[in-house]
Amino acid sequence: MAKYQLFMLTLAIIVSLPLNAPAVEPSEILQNPQLEVRARNLSQNIRCLVCQNQSIDDSNASLAKDLRKIVREQLISGASDNDIYDFLIARYGDFVLLRPPVKATTYILWYGPLFIFFAGLLLSVLFLIRRKRIMPEEPLSLEEKEELSILISREKEG
């Protein structure tokens, strides 16, 4: 167990700070510029599994490099973007996607903010309606009366 912890610790040290070297090497870049653009876009949506929260486009880990190569090979052989995502999901699960797919387990993630917006809107409207019911049109406060008199006097001056 102690050894295991030691392993996790070393792993943590190795991966905990971003290595500040960008990823894509000149040798990886495809001849066809359109395919290369697609490759870059795909890479930005695929998680580097050994790193923490980096896409394979940002990581110079060896697995990220291998995955970048696979993405490009499949693009050359005519695969669609979805083919490539499916290939990776079959091996690594949904975790590999930085944009989680919309499905039952992610409804809260995708629709939660929308729900909160409408709930908040409803609450604000209820709040305004209730206030109106409880509080009749308020008479002018002392401060406002003063303001009014200042305004009137200014009008007279000007």
């Binding site: 930005q44 929260n53 896409s55 975790f95 996607l97 930085l98 989680p100 387990t105 809260i108 993630l109």
Partner: peptide, 22 residues
Amino acid sequence: IGTLYPLFLDATTGQKVSVGPP
């Protein structure tokens, strides 16, 4: 929600999900 969803999903279903820039 986006930041903490991986935590929430893992605790409730054991599934892992990545929520990234996209």
